[in-house]
């Protein structure tokens, strides 16, 4: 295994300046569960790992009391998200995803920021957040800026991050009332899976009916990056949400997906599962909205 120096930065600025002084031979690392695997397999060969774990912020989940936005620090572990009552109750779509990422051992260490920055097509963490219209805050030598998560990914392993920029925080706008979301990871085993397809659906209904006012359908593994299927979303808006309309939306989403064959699954099957999962997750959304109402 490649030897490296492990640099612990105490602040974001220190991390960025360490990165700049080492250039291409440096990589950021948080939980390290992905980075270590890549180093062991020789896929990356950094001379320096710059640890972000000790920068002293970006490791909490909070709601901004003024705006109602949800802020998830980039260093929040999947396990913290999984165990958070706030996430479980108010953002079950995130809970759906994070509780099935890797094992408890991995979730105890791996961070949501790391999951996003890795930018694998199957990143479970990204899909629900995209459905929630999340954006990410990015910190770099030029200061801070934000990018909508859907525009964050540029290709497998590729993101908009440049030159030592750090994803510091994920921000989820306050969701309107009567909004429900659900995520399904479709795999072969009940755990330890990369999804054959990952489907996140988020639906907002009119105040007193099942008519859809907003829909988000985000897919993982359906393209080189996470995508939204806009046609299917547009189709749902203004429609009564029921098995039939969701079935149609599923078909549209399947058509929009750019799935491919691999040893993990065949394209025709993935496409079919997009259709099935969109419908099923849509129904779960409906159920969850009604549960909220009941409460």
């Amino acid at each position: 295994m490649k030897k490296f120096k492990y640099l612990i930065s105490k602040t974001l600025d220190e991390a960025v300046s360490l990165y700049q002084s080492h250039g291409d031979s440096a990589m950021y690392v948080a939980g390290g569960t992905d980075v270590m695997v890549k180093i062991k397999s020789g896929k990356v060969t950094p001379d320096y790992l710059i640890s972000l774990t000790h920068v002293g912020r970006n490791s909490e989940i909070r709601i901004n009391p003024e705006t109602g936005t949800l802020h998830v620090g980039g260093l929040v572990t999947h396990r913290t998200l999984e165990m958070s009552p706030l996430i479980k109750l108010q953002y079950p779509i995130i809970h759906d995803a994070v509780q099935r990422i890797g094992s408890t051992q991995v979730r105890n260490v791996a961070t949501i920021g790391g999951n996003l920055v890795n930018a694998v097509p199957s990143a479970d963490g990204a899909i629900p957040l995209i459905a929630l219209d999340a954006y990410v805050n990015i910190y770099g030598s030029a200061g801070e800026h934000s990018v909508d998560l859907i525009h964050f990914f540029e290709g497998p392993g590729q993101t908009v991050l440049m030159n030592g920029e750090i994803l510091t925080e994920i921000v989820v706008p306050k969701q309107p009332p009567r909004t429900g979301g659900a995520y399904q990871k479709f795999g072969r085993r009940a755990a330890m899976e990369l999804p054959l397809i990952g489907v996140g659906v988020l639906i907002t209904l009119e105040e007193d009916s099942n008519r859809c006012v907003r829909a988000r359908i985000a897919l993982g593994v359906a393209a080189p990056t996470p995508i939204r299927t806009l046609g299917a979303e547009r189709y749902l808006v203004g429609k009564e949400i029921n098995e039939d309309t969701l079935n149609e939306a599923g078909k549209l989403a399947a058509e929009e997906s750019r799935v491919r064959d691999s040893i993990r699954g065949l394209a025709w099957y993935r496409r079919e599962m997009v259709a099935v999962s969109v419908q099923r997750m849509g129904l779960t959304c409906l159920q969850r909205i009604n549960q909220l109402k009941a409460k």
Partner: peptide, 16 residues
Amino acid sequence: NMNPDFRDYKLLTAMD
């Protein structure tokens, strides 16, 4: 061999 690891060789887990 296209799946020489436990990620892609689907040995069943405790959840299964």
